[in-house]
């Protein structure tokens, strides 16, 4: 009965403003990162491609295209009904994206070995759902504090001591998942600010600077611009992608 009333009563929702920005950085020649905002669906996606030549680019774009097609109006409607549906839809979307990227790599020898890290964020009422593989991160800034929501799927975090480099990821689109993608749920309050970013940002800019920049920024677009600027100042070794969502 409680569920029934919850369904018919309007869900409290946050007014969202958002903006994304992707930059090639200072070292790389092409941008293998990709982001997408599904307007009106409150879905935000960031992917960071990898693999030689232009294959990383192909992987991240293909994965995002699949995601966009999968999150149809019907699926999103189901996702709004309860959190289990959200989880299911996100995991299914990841499976589909993974399938497509693996098939593409198999068909074309030049693309062999390509892949991408991927994070999807969905906001339903006052709850943030994230699902990710790899080392693209989600941060939530709440009352002057920054919290890393996601766990990186890298050698450093999953098997410390055995790592040649922090960039070695253990779960990625384009390869069969050794474990399911990671899902996280966070409740939001008015004034919270969400940041999705590729490793090009967090490896160049430390958390306290990120926090300060986001708190000070008057709009998501300004924050994104400033963060990309900072990452480039810090070296710009990798492609930088930033997606900001401000609640209320």
């Amino acid at each position: 009965m409680y569920n029934f009333f919850k369904k018919i009563l309007p869900h409290p929702s946050l007014k969202l403003t958002y903006a994304g920005l992707s930059d090639v950085g200072l070292v790389r020649e092409n941008n293998e990162d990709c982001y997408r905002i599904l307007e009106g669906k409150n879905i935000f996606i960031v992917a960071d491609g990898m693999g030689g030549h232009n294959a990383g680019e192909v992987a991240s774009r293909a994965a995002i295209e699949v995601m966009q097609r999968y999150f149809s109006d019907k699926i999103v409607k189901a996702m709004r009904s309860n959190s289990q549906e959200v989880r299911h839809a996100m995991l299914t979307a990841f499976e589909k994206a993974n399938r497509v990227v693996m098939d593409l790599a198999e068909e074309d020898g030049d693309l062999l070995g390509m892949g991408c890290t991927l994070i999807v964020a969905f906001i339903r009422g006052t709850t943030l759902y994230t699902c990710h593989v790899g080392d693209t991160r989600c941060y939530v800034v709440s009352e002057n504090r920054i919290r890393k929501v996601t766990r990186d799927h890298t050698m450093t975090e999953e098997a410390p001591g055995n790592s040649p480099s922090r960039h070695v990821v253990t779960r990625v689109i384009g390869y069969p998942f050794p474990e399911p993608p990671e899902c996280n749920t966070i409740s939001l309050r008015e004034g919270d600010r969400i940041l999705l970013c590729s490793d090009g940002l967090w490896s160049m800019v430390d958390e306290s600077t990120i926090l300060e920049t986001i708190v000070k920024a008057e709009s998501p677009a300004k924050a994104a611009e400033r963060l990309v600027e900072l990452a480039n100042k810090g070296g710009g070794d990798d492609n930088i992608t930033v997606l900001n969502v401000f609640c209320g």
Partner: peptide, 8 residues
């Protein structure tokens, strides 16, 4: 320094 993938 590039992002690489190792499947455990």
């Amino acid at each position: 320094d590039q992002t690489v993938f190792v499947n455990a």
